[in-house]
Amino acid sequence: MTSIRIDQNLTSELLAKAKRKGATAADAVAVEGDAASVQVRLSVVDKLSKAQEKRLGLRVYLGQRSAGASTSDLSPASLDELVETRRSWKTPLQVCPTRLPWRRSGRTSISMTARRCRWTG
């Protein structure tokens, strides 16, 4: 997991980048969390779990349309890719659900959702 801190510098840079790439508006949501749980049955531990989460999502608006993508990789290259998912969001009406820009490499996943879409392809 990357140690890059999600703060106002990071989000304002991301939002500015989205605007430069043509978004009329944009927002960023991030969550960081630590979770731990234990399940005991008849005084014996059945399950122990610990999880750490860090995730950043970008949503861009193009007039009345919007599309979003999220990642858990906060490296500059990954954030560029997050914004560049706009290749799809700029024309989200042409997004096909089976051809969403899904990437998965190690711990990184970029997923995308769009609103007011019509599926094509």
Binding site: D7, A25, D27, A30, V38, Q39, L42, E53
Partner: peptide, 19 residues
């Protein structure tokens, strides 16, 4: 008998920014 007992803890941070 018992289906079990759970204990869980969570701590986190949420942030939001817009243009």
């Amino acid at each position: 008998n018992s289906e079990g007992a759970d204990f869980s803890a969570f701590g986190g941070r949420t942030l939001f920014a817009n243009s």
